[in-house]
Amino acid sequence: MANIAVARIKREFKEVVKSEEVAKCHIKVELVDDSFTSLRGEILGPPDTPYEGGTFILDIRIPETYPFNPPKVQFLTKIWHPNISSVTGAICLDILKDQWAAAMTLRTVLLSLQALLAAPEPDDPQDAVVARQYKETSDIFSQTARHWASNYASAPHREPVMDDKVAQLKNMGFDEHKARVALSTHNWDIEQAMENILS
């Protein structure tokens, strides 16, 4: 890996560790190994959003050409959000693509992702199913996002009705995550969700 990339990550690492946001437990970065090419990020779900209080883990890969090219970031924690794939965790965010600038840092990337959680952009979706739900039935979207956050990101606010529906399908022998995806995709209609899993 190019010297500049490693040197920068080392310096940035210190910056994030010292930052105000870390002190408030809002963001965090950890090394995965000694190479400084693979990092683990963490962001707290922002207040007044369905993700509030959840802890979202991110996989961060530093390319050899960093900081001339952006880091490759994806969610490891499963999340229901129009700009994040509910299957792979891939993120659609301009600064991680063509709007990247060499002066941006791991800290600004994590803060931008936190801002993305607070302000989805459904017209530039990564997950078409979630984006459609966000635009057409925003109440169901918010509840679904909160349900996912409470189950996968340890967020404190639960959605008991949705928890029950997942439990019902689980008791019938269906895989819990598959049941959750099917129910979320079919606006929590149990029959449609079952048909979907069985088809």
Binding site: I4, P67, A103
Partner: peptide, 11 residues
């Protein structure tokens, strides 16, 4: 009085 650091390499 000038900038002390290069924001690209952070050196």
């Amino acid at each position: 009085k000038k900038t002390k650091e290069c924001v690209i390499c952070m050196g």
